[in-house]
Design a protein around this nucleic acid. Structure first.
Lengths: 223, 223
DNA sequence: ATATAAATTTAGATTAGCCTAAAGTTATTT
DNA sequence: AAATAACTTTAGGCTAATCTAAATTTATAT
């Protein structure tokens, strides 16, 4: 029962975790899309996860899956690896913001607990990765993190950028160019109901930047 | 033809490289022993390597394999990853001498060229790993390294430890305890023809240590 | 030169994770 | 409540890398 998990299993658990954040449960098709495999492959893997010992997911046919306690722990462990690695690549090895995700995606499955422990120490047991995502602690509890989306702010509201979803490297590069990175203070100077565009004044910068809703929904702030 | 190699293929090429160092060629059974798989598995993989495009080994039935130019380049590339990682784990993350090999063994297959480039830069383009093994350069040429074995020294000879074979963690721990590590200066104070034991005086140390031939053959010195 | 031992190869299975195509289930619309 | 659309599962295959067991080849010793 205590066999080491394969990389594919770790990826599935992480994906189920991510999708459950917004959806509550993870459907076969959403998982297939997220992992870029066919739905049939997902069904196959889900069955394995559900009949593992201990079971890693609760599975009801045609109704998708939810992580069990055991599955959640594995997902958080992998997530801790991933986010520590992202920060390590950025802070210690000088990777740019938008390149850390891809490299961490491969390394996370391969590093030992010792490696995890060492980079956590070198980084000073950090709470957030370079995109502002919270890093699960050693006991797998989660540090608090901003839940207000930039898209929720109205005209005149101010806040500090805390977090940007990290899956799209192009978007990260774009935001970095515009100066929209964690800890930046911003103010919504205008909002257009017609095209859902947010006009943003960035502290210490003259130009006002305009962001579409698809982008402002990916950015979290603290008022 | 330009597909990325699998981890197993990289391991085979590296093993063939290592065995070829001492044997000139790599036999099926030696490879099987080295890689801890059955000879049948080796035969299967060897056929694949030989019929790859471009071929990675020259294969003659019942006569073992030799690396081709292409195979040699892949082997050296993986070796560069491995040895850079060992030094990185030791110098930057504070791993003890005897634990770097195992971790590097897994990471070497997964890091990108960027990661390689970054750690090489952080380490200052080093020529040797923590065991004294030479690190292939970016162009895959090899820095010079000591070729005289400690077992070749006679009574009264002195030298500086330069290199210890890195595959056996217990041995490394043992030598570390005894104070036999790279750059240490030593003198052979006695040699027993009967039991092939070397009696070694270590600079700045009172006790004389006794090493069997199986060990002194794994250690390289510079006169 | 024949028998035996050692090394190697062949043949056939196994496992993990993926695929396509067909069949079945659930949800939505009229 | 029937038809259609959307989603999910089943069934059967594929590839990579391994295994065991049997067959073959090479080397060694009488």
């Amino acid at each position: 029962m205590e066999d080491k998990l394969t990389q594919a299993v770790e990826d599935y658990l992480k994906a189920i975790y991510e999708l459950s954040q917004t959806e509550g449960r993870a459907s076969t098709s959403k998982l297939a899309e997220y992992l870029e495999v066919t739905p049939a492959s997902v069904t196959g893997m889900i069955k394995k996860l559900a009949s593992a010992n201990p079971p890693l997911v609760d599975y009801q046919k045609h109704r998708g899956v939810v992580l069990t306690e055991a599955g959640m722990n594995e997902a958080l462990e992998t997530l801790r690896h991933h986010r520590l690695l992202e920060l390590f690549l950025h802070d210690i090895l000088g990777y740019p913001w938008d390149e850390v995700h891809e490299e961490a995606e491969r390394l996370e499955h391969v590093i030992s607990e010792k490696f995890e422990e060492r980079i956590a120490a070198v980084l000073g047991n950090p709470k957030h990765d370079p995109h502002g995502d919270p890093i699960p602690r050693l006991d797998l509890s989660m540090p608090a993190s901003a839940e207000t989306r930039l898209s929720d702010l109205g005209k005149g509201d101010s806040g500090t950028i805390k977090r940007v979803r990290d899956t799209d490297a192009d978007l990260l590069r774009h935001l970095s160019d515009l100066g929209v990175t964690p800890e930046t203070q911003v103010k919504v100077v205008d909002y257009s109901d017609y095209d859902k565009n947010t006009h943003l004044k960035i502290k210490n910068q003259d130009e006002v930047v305009v962001l579409g809703q698809n982008i402002t929904e990916q950015i979290y702030v603290e008022a």
